[in-house]
Amino acid sequence: MSYRRIRRACHGRAPAVRVSLALAIVVALGCGPVSHVEPPPPKPVPKVLVIGVDGVRTDRVLTTGATYLRALMSEGLYATGQLDLAPGVKSLSGPAWSTILTGVNPEKHGVRDNTFAGRQYTRYPDFLTRLERLRPDLDTLAVTLWRTFFDTGLLHQVDWHATLRPGVDYAEHLKDEMIIRRMTDLISRHRVDVVFLHLVNPDKVAHKHGPLGPEYVTALDTMDLGIGRLVDAVRRRPTYRNEKWSVIVVTDHGHRDEGGHGGLSPEELQIFLLAAGPGIRHERRHEAKLVDVAPTVFAQLGMRIPADFEGVPLGGELPGK
């Protein structure tokens, strides 16, 4: 039966006799134009930006403007706390960043100071390496000014990584600016899924001038501006409307009033975690733990939490261990 005869039936011009299969089809389907069914919108793709800020003393952060940090706090979870160090573990960057990136404490990853002696990264790899092994389709990026992260294997399997070239004398205040500029360009223009960025200037300034003076305030304000630029780069992505981003900001230790760390004073042990993204409630906590960063990344990506992680996600649903 031709389309023409069916169309005539729809307009009431079909013969009165010989009610045919065509008319039965018309009655069943209805007359009139065929409606266009819109396909369902694509499911937003989860992505995570982790910003590590070295040597930021928690009690000094909110004495500055902290415009962009405060904005993230208003959207998500802000937790303060103190390092809980086992005997023999120092309040240094080596143990702290190992804990942040591996999701396990020094008793497992083996790093107790900045020599990185005893490291167990083969057994407890960083979360980027774990993601690459579980989901090779993910695009992972890592940038740090501390080459030791790569030289020791703390950051091992990453799609794209960068650090400063050895032997080049960069002006101290320009180091963070260089990697922020590079990362904002990469985030704005390229496909990325999980990003880790490590900023060091607050720690450098605190070592030189202490955390109580105007130099440290300037360093914190500059860090805050850099965080704002990174978040803005995320929101300027052409594909942003089809993505759901989570942002995590974490520091590794504090500083004594005169500058320096490694001991057990309350000022040296200060840490904070900030997380904003889908499923993370707006709240304030006082039990920040560095092991919570890695499981939060997995949870925000909707991935099963590795069984050997020692932390828990900062809000959101727990995909399972």
Rank of each mutant, 00 (worst) to 15 (best):
A117D: 07
A142G: 11
Y68T: 05
F150Y: 15
D59A: 09
S91A: 15
D137G: 14
V143A: 06
S93Y: 07
T129G: 08
L154I: 00
G81H: 08
Y124I: 11
I100H: 05
G52F: 12
S74K: 12
G94W: 09
T148A: 13
L72R: 06
F150R: 09
D137S: 15
V53C: 12
D151Q: 14
L101Y: 08
A66L: 05
T102G: 09
T129P: 09
T152H: 02
F127W: 05
P125R: 07
Y121K: 03
D84I: 11
P95E: 13
E107R: 09
L128R: 06
T58P: 00
I51N: 07
G55Q: 07
T152D: 09
T129L: 00
D137Y: 10
A79R: 03
W146A: 03
Q82M: 11
K108Q: 15
V56G: 07
V143R: 02
V56P: 02
L83I: 12
V143G: 01
T64H: 08
A96R: 08
H156C: 02
T80N: 04
V61I: 15
L92F: 15
R133C: 01
E132V: 00
M73F: 04
E107K: 07
A66R: 06
S91Y: 07
L69S: 07
L72H: 01
D113P: 09
Y68N: 15
L85G: 05
V56K: 05
L128N: 06
T99V: 04
N114P: 04
E132S: 10
E107W: 07
L62A: 03
A142Y: 04
H109C: 09
S91N: 10
T67P: 01
V61S: 05
G118D: 14
G76V: 01
I100P: 12
L138I: 06
F127V: 01
T63R: 15
G81E: 06
K90G: 00
R70A: 10
F149R: 07
G81K: 11
R135H: 14
G103T: 05
L77A: 02
E132R: 05
R147F: 00
R135S: 08
S98Y: 06
Q157D: 15
D54Q: 07
S93R: 10
Y121A: 11
G81S: 06
R70T: 13
T148G: 03
P87R: 05
